[in-house]
Design a protein around this nucleic acid. Structure first.
Lengths: 194, 194
DNA sequence: TCAAGATTTCAGAAATTACTGAAATTTCCG
DNA sequence: CGGAAATTTCAGTAATTTCTGAAATCTTGA
């Protein structure tokens, strides 16, 4: 591998991290390389930068495309496919969340649902179904929230993040305000606590 | 493996899913088994239920303990260690998030921070650092939000989830109300778009 | 249509990870 | 203590995953 030190360290770290997920080292490295590269790269350039075989790069690129994490970018007068990552890190986050949901959460939800349909054959099984139902409810709530929030534009999402747990205080404040405001509709006056 | 059908299907699914994460099949199965079991189980019972070797179970239990995902539970008049999962699925979620953050996010953040300290040796490297900075900012915002939200009691967390993206509407409503409520505050007036 | 360039496929090699059985160690009761 | 029960360790094996090189396929411009 022959890269400027910062890029190299970044690429290597992603390689390592990759294996903590289900992703293999090379795929992680390819992604990281494309992420930091100022220009789209073709397969041959990736081979040179990472020192892995051409076929390995080909498979890695295929996997990353299946994840929608890289975009093919055509360079004029060049037959070879070049690839980049999206510029917007928020977009990358969205894609990642979406894909992981699709691959990990959705299948689980459907298995759980199926298991909850069966009629229990024993007391132990009844208990198992109860536990499964708890998990199912939790996951469903999380995904509903996610489906809801994922549509927000970046700016709002960022605002929400910045607010953090303070939203709950806000909820309470709003309850209070609204309950005060409602009697007089649009003719309300500030209260001392506001 | 000799389990009631529902439990068995659940355990097998978790085994499969395990491999999509970094977790191995046996660990996933042990966890699932303990999760659905109405009573704490000891290692020998896990061996029987899953049909894997005693030593494999021993290692799996160790890993699950390192993740704080299972709790040893003493059974009176029995020398053997028994294990369960926490009853509260929200608590389980919190633990999972915390551990994954510790193992995956924190190390990445620290690597990124380090790379941002270096002075760039070339234009390509300067660009790489810019990209790394974007990623760093995003991750830091997410973890700040997480640190903030994780302290909420379950009930509030659930309320927040249930609200979903509607919080943004609420935010706007609150702005409006507050701006109406404090006409003199910073000398501002509501604009037509508010 | 052909040929050079580019990419993909795939069978086997290499590397990694998971699992086992046997031996070692720990625990704790008498 | 002594020793039975329980657990852990670990070296070796099995299983899985990753990676490669060679061959097949696809693409495009002349």
């Amino acid at each position: 591998m022959n890269l400027p030190p910062v890029a190299q360290a970044f690429v290597l770290h992603f390689g390592e991290m990759g294996s903590r997920w289900g992703i293999n080292r090379t795929v992680g490295q390819i992604y990281a390389l494309l992420y930091v590269s100022p220009v789209p790269l073709n397969a041959e350039q990736i081979v040179e930068a990472l020192g892995v075989s051409r076929s390995n790069v080909s498979m890695g690129l295929r996997e990353l495309q299946a994840w929608n994490l890289i975009i093919p970018k055509h360079i004029p007068d060049d037959r070879r496919d070049h690839y980049t990552t999206p510029d917007d890190v928020w977009q990358i986050l969205r894609t990642l969340a979406e894909e992981r949901k699709k691959r990990e959460v959705d299948p689980t939800l459907s298995v759980l649902r199926e298991l909850l349909m069966q009629s229990p054959g024993s007391e132990a099984e009844r208990h198992a179904q109860e536990r499964i139902a708890e998990m199912h409810t939790l996951i469903e709530r999380l995904t509903t929230w996610y489906d809801d929030v994922k549509r927000l534009e970046t700016e709002r999402l960022a605002a929400l993040l910045a607010l953090g747990a303070r939203v709950t205080r806000l909820l309470e404040a709003k309850d209070k305000i609204v309950s005060l405001a409602r009697p007089a509709a649009r003719n309300r006056r500030p209260t001392p606590t506001e």
